[in-house]
Amino acid sequence: MIDLFSLALTHGLLLLMAVRLMSRDDLDRDPPAGQEPMEP
């Protein structure tokens, strides 16, 4: 029971991280050449 819970929890957190990462707008644009990357 605990093994199933730990697997579901970790995979759920990984899925949440992937969804939040893919929804970021700054991942789709490259900064212009010669400029420093934007700070978060």
Rank of each mutant, 00 (worst) to 15 (best):
M1A: 10
M1Y: 13
M1R: 14
M1G: 13
M1P: 11
I2Q: 14
I2M: 10
D3P: 03
D3G: 14
D3Q: 15
D3C: 04
D3W: 03
L4D: 13
S6H: 08
S6Q: 11
L7T: 09
L7S: 14
L7W: 15
L7C: 12
L7A: 11
A8L: 12
L9S: 13
L9R: 14
L9K: 05
T10Q: 06
T10N: 08
T10F: 04
T10G: 01
H11N: 15
H11S: 09
H11E: 12
G12W: 01
L13K: 14
L13R: 14
L13Q: 08
L14G: 05
L14E: 07
L14V: 00
L15Q: 02
L15T: 01
L16Y: 06
L16M: 09
L16A: 15
L16F: 07
M17C: 07
M17E: 02
M17A: 14
M17G: 04
M17V: 12
A18N: 04
V19N: 11
V19Q: 15
R20F: 05
R20K: 09
L21S: 13
M22E: 03
S23F: 04
S23R: 09
R24E: 14
R24H: 11
D25F: 00
D25L: 03
D25C: 00
D26I: 06
D28E: 11
D28Y: 12
D28T: 06
R29C: 00
R29E: 02
D30F: 06
D30Y: 00
D30N: 01
D30V: 03
D30Q: 02
P31C: 01
P31Y: 01
P32N: 02
P32E: 00
A33S: 12
A33V: 08
G34W: 05
G34V: 04
G34F: 03
G34R: 04
Q35S: 10
Q35G: 04
Q35V: 10
Q35D: 07
Q35A: 07
E36Y: 12
E36D: 10
E36K: 05
E36C: 04
E36Q: 10
P37R: 08
M38K: 09
M38Y: 11
M38E: 15
E39V: 13
P40M: 12
